[in-house]
């Protein structure tokens, strides 16, 4: 087994681990972390494919490598926006729950007041 196949399989497993965490963990920050695990798995899969494109003395195909750099920067900015949303939710409500019954309670309160 060569390095690109090994890391390609590793990437597939990372996507699986991240997907499980994304669904199961109720905390928004942990969901963001899990989503980043999936993202890194996708990047790694792409990188393994780039490595297979090694030719003319280059270690890998430079086109996917350049797109990976773009992808990592965009993933960071999306993460920053998601974290800012969670922190704003915390500032507004004092909790970060995503449970569907919690907002319903909050909506039921104003008519009584």
């Amino acid at each position: 087994m060569n390095a690109s196949t090994l890391f390609g399989l590793c990437a597939a497993a990372l996507v699986g681990v991240g997907l499980y965490g994304l669904i199961v963990n109720p905390q928004p920050l942990r969901k963001i972390l899990a989503f980043n695990l999936i993202g890194c798995g996708v990047f790694l899969l792409f990188g393994a494919i780039a490595r297979r494109g090694a030719a003319v003395g280059m270690g890998g195909d430079p086109v996917p490598q350049a797109l990976l750099i773009t992808g990592i920067v965009v993933a960071f900015s999306a993460t920053a926006l998601a974290v800012a949303l969670v922190l704003r939710l915390f500032d507004e409500t004092g909790s970060v729950t995503l449970a569907s019954d919690a907002p319903a309670k909050a909506q039921a309160d104003p008519p009584d007041a």
Binding site: G47, R51, G60, L68, I72, V73
Partner: peptide, 9 residues
């Protein structure tokens, strides 16, 4: 994976 640019990023 021979991608030092990506490694730095």
């Amino acid at each position: 994976l021979a991608a030092p640019d990506v490694a730095l990023t």
